[in-house]
Simulated scan of single mutants.
Amino acid sequence: MTVPPGDNGTTELIRWAAFSCVLVPVVLLWYGSSPAGATGTALGLAAVTAVCRLLLRRSERGAARPSPERPQDRPHHQEHHPAPAPRPGHRPRGGTGAHRGTRHTGGSTPVG
């Protein structure tokens, strides 16, 4: 069984994570941590590693799929949505940029 070229990096990452799941509790025990604490840490690291592995595999499968061709297959964020209608009782804001809604009391000369 051969490993696909893109899969090699993920496999290597998972191997290092599994190694850390063993190494960290051993180091904790070496420095005087309780066996229960080291076991809890090992279980927590194993759970995080398993979830990360699952997410990596899912991400790789998604990246391997071809991009959608039809407009109805576009991701939601690319769809065109009309501008929302103004709510009753609210007036639209005028102008654009950072000075919208500020009061201008003088001319355009700088204050010195």
Rank of each mutant, 00 (worst) to 15 (best):
87 R>M: 12
22 V>L: 14
106 G>E: 01
27 V>R: 07
11 T>Y: 01
98 A>M: 13
70 R>P: 00
71 P>Y: 00
7 D>E: 09
99 H>Y: 12
105 T>P: 03
9 G>Y: 09
77 H>K: 06
61 R>P: 00
79 E>F: 11
46 A>Q: 02
89 G>V: 13
23 L>W: 11
48 V>T: 13
25 P>G: 02
14 I>T: 01
20 S>M: 12
66 P>N: 06
39 T>R: 05
102 T>D: 02
29 L>T: 05
54 L>F: 13
105 T>Q: 14
26 V>A: 11
60 E>G: 05
57 R>I: 08
109 T>N: 07
65 R>E: 10
86 P>F: 01
71 P>D: 01
57 R>D: 02
37 G>D: 07
100 R>S: 10
80 H>Q: 12
102 T>W: 03
11 T>L: 11
105 T>D: 14
100 R>E: 06
19 F>V: 13
32 G>Q: 11
10 T>G: 11
99 H>R: 10
79 E>K: 15
32 G>E: 11
21 C>S: 13
20 S>R: 08
69 E>C: 07
86 P>L: 11
49 T>I: 03
29 L>V: 02
47 A>G: 15
46 A>P: 02
7 D>I: 00
33 S>N: 13
81 H>S: 06
28 L>V: 06
97 G>M: 00
57 R>W: 00
108 S>H: 12
105 T>V: 13
94 G>F: 10
62 G>F: 04
102 T>L: 09
90 H>C: 02
94 G>H: 14
74 R>D: 10
38 A>W: 03
27 V>P: 02
77 H>A: 10
55 L>M: 14
61 R>M: 11
31 Y>G: 01
52 C>F: 09
23 L>H: 08
47 A>E: 05
92 P>S: 15
44 G>I: 09
27 V>D: 05
19 F>G: 08
26 V>N: 02
80 H>L: 14
100 R>T: 14
109 T>R: 15
95 G>Q: 03
43 L>Q: 07
20 S>C: 10
39 T>W: 04
45 L>G: 05
45 L>N: 05
105 T>H: 15
107 G>A: 12
28 L>E: 12
47 A>F: 13
44 G>P: 05
96 T>Q: 04
97 G>Y: 00
78 Q>A: 15
102 T>F: 00
96 T>N: 01
66 P>I: 09
59 S>R: 13
41 T>L: 12
62 G>I: 02
50 A>F: 07
105 T>A: 15
8 N>K: 12
66 P>Q: 08
69 E>Q: 12
27 V>Q: 05
99 H>F: 13
15 R>K: 14
22 V>G: 06
